[in-house]
Amino acid sequence: MRAAVITFPGSNCDEDLQWALTEISGIPADLVAATATTLTGYDAVFLPGGFSYGDYLRSGAIARFSPIMTAVKKFAAAGGFVVGICNGFQILTEAGLLPGTLQWNTSLHFICAPAPLEIVNSDTPFTNAYPAGTTITLPIAHGQGNYYADPATLVALETNHQIIFRYTDNPNGSVHDIAGITNAAGNVLGMMPHPERAMETLLGSTDGRGVFQSLIHTMEGAGSNVAN
């Protein structure tokens, strides 16, 4: 298994993700520039946190036009695993790979704090290493993490079990306490909390490791077979 971490201008969690993948999870990971046009050779693609293009206009609004996003869409359409964390989640919604949008937190402040999360669906490629019903705590660090979707979209998300993580103590006003969702096909994950910041006992928590272990389980089960 080999992972790509996309570096957009203004991404700032790209190296953290690479560290979490390579050094902690044993998944070789490369930083791939947003100007690249191909994702050949990768089994999973990560869109990291940060402030792509300064988050000017709207979070993720400019990043979605990067050359690499054409390849990301193609990769996702072929069933490849795509994970967007924080700003990566915002980019995925702007790019139309995930439904809904992320607004300003109701406090209008950036919030950096530990967030307890319920794993709502542990039967996904991203959460199968967590026992069903587990509660984990991951750091959040965002100003615009307040998830919004219209009522019809929310019904679809609930019905299809696309809500993966829910805040147990909603920090930002997200509808239905949503912290992370997948697309209908289940191969694209977007989440506001940062699993890559909860990988080491020294830093206070290893609750995030399950996201990466789940992907390893899934890939080992299925074999590395993403076509491009």
């Binding site: 206009l57 609004a61 949008t101 607004q103 979707a149 219209d150």
Partner: peptide, 8 residues
């Protein structure tokens, strides 16, 4: 395409 997010 750019200036507005037509979702919201």
């Amino acid at each position: 395409r750019l200036l507005a997010n037509v979702n919201m």
